[in-house]
Each structure stands twice: as structure tokens, then as C-alpha cells.
């Protein structure tokens, strides 16, 4: 694993609506190294997508407001980069793929030319050269180059997602932001796409921020994991550590909620209650109300991020494995 490529420091983002302020991301810090795949895991509304979009600076402002923080990419603060500078970075050094492959492609343009277009935008090369590279990209994601001039509707869901991935990787980005890239796919197709991503990761050495709610996908693909809850990272560790010894009660709860294939128990252990209203976050620990370990101080003060084992960070007063 190489040097730090992306470094987010104390990032806070709010959405200002008519009625209230939504505290979407609260003081998040995160490092992504060269060649590393990091999983951002959390439930709907935890703020995962907001983080990714803020890296690319594609959050709609208003309503979104970046309150504080810095995002260093290759040494430059993206939040201070000019819009012109960002245009050179987006799609070129940092690419993003979205959950729904159906809406990410222009339905009336040929698949190949869409990829070629993406390449041409950032490289001063001829049309023919761009198309040749686009063709290579398609073959790299396992689509025969002969389908270069077909339209998106002629592709199935899984193939469209491959095209989207090919398009994102076309300029050989250093960082790929993948927002639930396999959620809309069937399991057998998801398996194909995951396998392909494994392969690409090794061949291209791209760093990946993998946003997902599926711990199975994380276990499969990620080197390290950050668990996001109510706009905060509550636990961060290498994937092996995280799956071996989850320490934050929320992480433990997430694992408990999953139906285990090898378990014989007839009841799941869900986390009680719901995620707090992001317009009205509790003063103390965000997880306090749902936490089986909550004590007096949890409601009073928010815990700091602590290193409980080398490289294993937890934001909890009472971290540790399940008793």
C-alpha cells in the first residue's frame, strides 16, 4: 500500500432547507492510500453519498453547504480548487460510478462513442485514437469490442454497469468513487461485476472508495472499512480487523442484523429503533438511544475517535467485542 492519495480532514456538510438544517456529514476524517480499496458502510441517509459527492464537488449548492474541512488530493485542497481546475480532475483523476446504470448512460448515443467522448475530454488525441482506446476499455470489462456501436438499450443491466465502469476507468483515474455499484444487479451478475472489479483493481492499481450497505460486498472487495452512522465515522479499521473484531456497538449490531447463512437460530438480533433525525442530532453519542451499552455519559458527551488497537479506530466510550 502506497502513500496517502486522498485525505479528508474534519469535513462537515449541512443541507439548508426551508424548515431545518440537515447535519449530513459531521467532522469526518479519512485517508485513502494509493491502490487501496476502502469501504464506506452505512445505512440509507448516513451521509455516504454526500461524502463522495463532496470529493468531486458535485453537491448541489444550495442546499448543501460545506461548513468546514479540507479534502487533499495529491497535495491540493479540492475544496479550494477553482471550478476550472475541478473540470480537469473530474472524470480524469477522480471518477465516480453511480448505483443505477440505467440512468448513467445517454440512451440515444452509441455506447462506444460515449466512452470515447469521455476519453477525448481529458486527452488531446484524435477521434480514431479515442475510439480505439474506448474499444480496449470495453474489452477490459468483458464486453466484446464488436458491440462498440450498439445503444445502451441493447445491453442488459449487468452489461450497462460494466459500460459505466469502463467509462469511469477510461482516463485511468487515480481514484474511483463507486456508489453502490452492484446494488441494482442480480446476485449472479453482481458476482461477475465484483470479480471484474477485483481484476481491474489489481491491473490498474486504482484506489477505490466503495460506498455500500452490503457487508458482503465489503468483505469481498475492500482492504479497509469505515462505518458511517448519522454523518460520522464511528469505526475504522482494516477489513480483516473489522470482520474479526468489530468494536463499536453499531458495527456489532449491523453484523447481528444480518441473516447468517450458517446460523441455525430462528431470530435475528436487530438494532432497536431508528437512526436519529439528522436535523436534530442528539448532544452526546449519536448511537446512544439505540445502544445496548449506553451509560450516563454517552448521552452527555460525544466520544472522541480512539485507537483501540493498532490501526483500529473506534468512536465509543465502551468499545470492544460482544460480551
Amino acid at each position: 500500500m502506497g502513500d496517502v492519495l486522498l485525505s479528508i480532514k474534519n469535513l462537515s456538510i449541512e443541507y439548508h432547507t426551508d424548515k431545518a438544517v440537515v447535519y449530513a456529514v459531521n467532522n469526518i476524517s479519512l485517508d485513502v492510500r494509493h491502490g487501496e480499496t476502502i469501504g464506506l458502510v452505512g445505512e440509507t441517509g448516513a451521509g455516504k453519498t454526500t461524502i463522495a459527492k463532496s470529493i468531486l464537488r458535485v453537491l448541489p449548492t444550495p442546499p448543501a453547504v460545506v461548513k468546514s474541512g479540507e479534502i487533499f488530493f495529491d497535495g491540493d485542497d479540492l475544496l479550494k480548487t477553482s471550478e476550472h481546475g475541478m473540470k480537469k480532475i473530474r472524470g480524469n483523476k477522480i471518477a465516480m460510478i453511480f448505483q443505477d446504470p440505467m440512468t448513467a448512460l445517454n440512451p440515444i448515443e452509441r455506447v462506444g462513442s460515449q466512452i470515447a467522448e469521455a476519453i477525448k475530454q481529458h486527452n488531446k488525441i484524435s477521434r480514431a485514437e479515442a475510439e480505439r482506446r474506448a474499444c480496449d476499455m470495453l474489452e477490459m470489462v468483458g464486453i466484446p469490442g464488436g458491440r462498440f456501436s450498439e445503444y445502451p438499450h441493447q445491453f442488459s443491466g449487468g452489461m450497462k454497469q460494466r459500460v459505466v465502469i469502463a467509462m469511469a476507468l477510461a482516463c485511468k483515474p487515480e481514484l474511483l468513487l463507486a456508489d453502490e455499484p452492484t446494488t441494482a444487479l442480480d446476485v449472479t451478475i453482481q458476482a461477475q461485476v465484483l470479480e471484474m472489479m477485483h481484476d481491474l483493481k489489481e491491473r490498474l492499481g486504482t484506489s477505490v472508495v466503495m460506498i455500500t450497505h452490503d457487508l458482503g460486498v465489503v468483505a469481498d472487495l475492500c482492504d479497509s472499512v469505515a462505518v458511517v452512522y448519522a454523518g460520522e465515522i464511528v469505526e475504522q479499521a482494516s477489513a480483516d480487523d473489522m470482520f474479526e473484531s468489530p468494536s463499536h456497538p453499531y458495527t456489532i449490531g449491523l453484523f447481528g442484523s444480518l441473516p447468517q447463512l450458517d446460523s441455525t437460530e430462528r431470530r435475528l438480533k436487530p438494532i432497536k429503533g431508528l437512526m436519529p433525525d439528522p436535523t436534530n442530532l442528539p448532544a452526546g453519542c449519536r448511537f446512544c438511544e439505540r445502544c445496548p451499552r449506553a451509560a450516563g455519559e454517552c448521552a452527555q458527551a460525544a466520544p472522541e475517535m480512539r485507537e483501540t488497537a493498532p490501526g483500529h479506530f473506534v468512536k465509543c466510550f465502551y468499545p470492544g467485542g460482544e460480551e
Binding site: 453482481q190 458476482a191 458482503g216 460486498v217 470482520f243
Partner: peptide
Amino acid sequence: LLSAIPVPNRKNRKKRILLTGE
């Protein structure tokens, strides 16, 4: 189908049977 389920477990990961095509 069963082998394609992503298992939230880093240790005993099964070998996936990859289907070609859709």
C-alpha cells in the same frame, strides 16, 4: 446462485462459481 452470495466474512470465503452471460 448460492456461491454468488457475498458473505460478510473474511475467513472462510468460498470459491464463486461464475456464470457466463445473463
